[in-house]
Design a protein around this nucleic acid. Structure first.
Length: 600
RNA sequence: GCCCUUGUAGUUCAAUGGAUAGAACGAGGCUCUUCUAAGGCCUUGAUGCAAGUUCGAUUCUUGCCAAGGGCACCA
């Protein structure tokens, strides 16, 4: 990359000036008029030498221009000019040749454009989504899914082999609550679906019923002492598998809720390799905890606990196995982590959850590190905030409580209406096309509003805003790409007297470049840097921000320029730019887990 | 009480220690006989408070204030 080249030139210049090689940075100035790259090297060195930074900058620039390595590079090569500005910034202006080359590079690399090899040969396991059978797929699962999927793809773009995993709570009180709800509603089903081999209703509808029964059971558990006892009894029976009727309901409920989740993953674009279940991890975790009793865990009030604060004062004590000999979440998490390393032995094992799990995950991680020190630096917990819904919007379109699933379908349905309002069907859109486009755009609206923010804080989701699709939004990105696609399709019929592929003769100097053209060029070549940043910080939002900027540059260019214009000798170059934009935004959208519809 | 997050325009979000703190929504104005107006252009407006480190702090440190989360048998 050009950035490394500039860094090397500076280091060489420092060497020949006899200056110490200090910690300087090469970065993009915020304002494009300050060049394409900028360095603070003169300011950093001047501080040490106690000299005037601007004078020092003059010397460094002179050296940069004259060094044998840089000769032919500055002025005639990839660097057009070097200037000094402000307090002593040295600004680099890239050349026409550089930008033309980068457009060519994009068109050649196609779907590989933006990839890097930081993780070549490495394996990364990413666990995310983690919904619970018998409970609705709520908004937190949607967030975890969007973030986890994007991070998985960013790892893949960085050369890693990524393995996706999903961890689900198929035992516990929530299951008993749902079963209680079902058993205590005589009108629940005409024919109990768990009696039939194949339920007549779609899995998602059956799962929706189960979700409502869970809510009823959950309420009863809080308010009714008798119900509480019954639910505890059911919970025990589920563990023991001692009641035929309950077993049937359990098997049915587990199956249909998991099937319903699968339908959601399909719409969201996620495919898991592993599905881990708490029921399977419990005995494994229990065994590991007991095998490490004396050195790590200890008994207290009949429970097995871990005093994490003895290793790190910021951590605290947690129970791993209860006094009733039931492994807690902590023990199951140990079982899960060991299982992951046993099955796949990943170089990095990532878990994506809500922030509320951050504290005890640290305790669990400490316990694991004591048992297996080699795992310590290979575990990475990524936490995100909660999604809060903006003012008053507490129920879905159907009047239910807002779940992740209802939000997803409301979003898709709203797009469908929007398409009709814009006259989509009248323009000859087929029913399937309307459905496909609605799904793609609806998912994109939702994912973008999750992925646009950095992960630390809670995000406020305003449904009305997200579906208005003006400005910053997933649909904005898709729409921009579709426009580019549409131009290119039209250009397919045009022949510019055979000049179309001849880019070289059309290059003009940077100075006469229209601003909207250079802005687009200057945004395009930065894509790989943004991917690297996202990978290094585990933060997809850098890509979302970048793509919005890129789409904005393209839209301005699109408005200001007639791209297909036989009279304009630069038209072929504009087409190449359009193609490069489409390729970049397509790769970027893929990284966010957003698809590009055929039309909009 | 201790620990973890987070405080930026009226609102929702950006900003690897750098130059005039960027967008979007909202409000007001302009823009489709021309490749998709889900677009573009112009105007409006912000770093919780107080110290410190630094040539330079939204960013790092400390204290305070505010919001959310966690702190023994739930996950």
């Amino acid at each position: 990359m050009i950035k490394e080249k500039i860094e090397k030139l500076i280091k060489d210049a420092l060497k020949s000036l006899g200056l110490e090689d200090l910690n300087f940075v090469v970065e993009h100035p915020e304002d494009l008029k300050n060049g394409d790259y900028s360095t603070n090297v003169a300011m950093v060195c001047a501080k040490n030498l106690k000299t005037n930074p601007r004078e020092l900058a003059e010397n460094i620039v002179a050296e940069l221009k004259n060094s044998p390595l840089a000769k032919g590079e500055v002025g005639g090569g990839l660097i057009h000019e070097i200037q000094i500005a402000g307090a002593g910034f040295i600004n680099f202006y890239l050349s026409r040749e550089f930008f033309s080359n980068s457009i060519k590079e994009i068109l050649e690399q196609k779907e590989n454009w933006g990839k890097n090899s930081f993780l070549a040969g490495k394996k990364v396991m990413v666990e995310y989504t983690d919904p619970n059978p018998f409970k609705p797929f709520h908004i937190g699962h949607l967030m975890s899914n969007a973030i986890g999927e994007s991070i998985s793809r960013i790892f893949e773009f960085s050369g890693a082999h990524t393995v996706r995993a999903n961890y689900q709570g198929d035992v516990g009180l929530h299951v008993a609550k749902a079963i209680y709800g079902i058993l205590n509603d005589p009108l629940a089903f005409d024919t109990p679906p768990w009696q039939e081999e194949i339920g007549t209703m779609p899995a998602s509808v059956q799962a929706d019923y189960i979700g409502r029964f869970y809510a009823k059971g959950s309420d009863a558990y809080e308010s009714d002492e008798k119900a509480k006892n019954e639910i505890d009894e059911i919970n025990k029976k589920v563990y023991e598998k001692s009641d035929d009727e309950i077993n049937k309901i359990y098997n049915w409920g587990r199956r249909v809720t998991l099937e319903a989740f699968e339908e959601i993953y399909k719409v969201l674009g996620t495919k898991f390799k592993y599905y881990f279940f708490e029921s399977e991890m419990a005995p494994i975790g229990n065994k590991i905890v007991r095998a490490n009793m004396s050195k790590i865990f200890e008994e207290s009030d009949n429970a097995i606990i871990f005093h994490a604060e003895t290793y790190d004062p910021k951590l605290h004590t947690r129970v791993f196995v209860t006094s009733k000999n039931l492994p807690t979440y902590e023990a199951k998490e140990i079982g899960l982590t060991f299982t992951k390393f046993e099955k796949e032995n990943p170089d990095i094992s990532v878990v994506v959850t809500a922030h509320e799990q951050a504290e005890y995950m640290k305790v669990v991680a400490k316990a694991i590190s004591l048992i297996h020190p080699e795992y310590e630096n290979r575990m990475k917990h990524i936490t995100h905030g909660m999604m809060r819904l903006a003012s008053g919007k507490m129920s879905s379109r159907k009047g239910n409580v807002v779940t992740g699933e209802s939000l997803l379908h409301d979003s898709i349905d709203t797009i469908k209406e929007k398409i009709s309002a814009r006259g989509g069907p009248a323009l000859g859109w087929k029913e399937v096309e309307v459905q496909e486009v609605s799904e793609s755009v609806g998912v994109s609206a939702l994912k973008y509003s999750i992925l646009r923010s950095s992960m630390g804080s809670d995000i406020v989701y305003d449904f009305e805003k997200s579906i208005s699709f003006e400005g910053d939004s997933g649909p904005y990105l898709q729409y921009s790409a579709i426009r580019a696609k549409s131009v290119l399709a039209k250009a397919g019929d045009t022949n510019f007297g055979g000049k179309r592929s001849d880019l070289k003769n059309l290059e003009r100097s940077v100075l006469e470049e229209p601003k909207e053209v250079s802005n687009l060029e200057k945004t395009l070549y930065r894509f790989p840097e943004v991917v690297v940043l996202s990978y290094q910080k585990f933060e997809p939002h850098h890509i979302a921000t970048y793509l919005t900027e890129l789409a904005s540059s393209f839209n301005t260019f699109y408005t200001e320029t007639k791209i297909i214009n036989e009279a304009d000798k630069y038209s072929p170059y504009y087409l190449a730019l359009t193609k490069a934009f489409l390729q970049t935004i397509q790769n970027g959208l893929w990284l966010l887990g957003i698809t590009l519809p055929e039309k909009m």
